[in-house]
């Protein structure tokens, strides 16, 4: 598995963490952290798409 593939896994986990963090923060009435989590989810997804496009030609192995 190349760094590209591992980075994709990392981005996936980071998205999940950000989403979970946002939900946890809203349930704990920490609105600021919740908003931060939502912003993080959006940014990480945008970055993920950009990263996949940019490294299209690189191998996953």
């Amino acid at each position: 598995m190349s760094l590209k593939a591992f980075h994709l896994i990392f981005v996936t986990f980071l998205t999940t963490l950000s989403l979970g963090f946002a939900v946890w923060a809203f349930l704990s009435h920490k609105i600021l952290f919740g908003l931060l989590g939502i912003v993080a989810v959006v940014l990480v997804i945008i970055y993920g798409v950009y990263f996949l496009k940019k490294l299209k030609k690189m191998s996953y192995l």
Binding site: L3, F6, H7, I9, F10, F13
Partner: peptide, 9 residues
């Protein structure tokens, strides 16, 4: 980089 990603994970 693979090691660093593991540590981040």
């Amino acid at each position: 980089g693979l090691f660093w990603h593991f540590v981040d994970l």
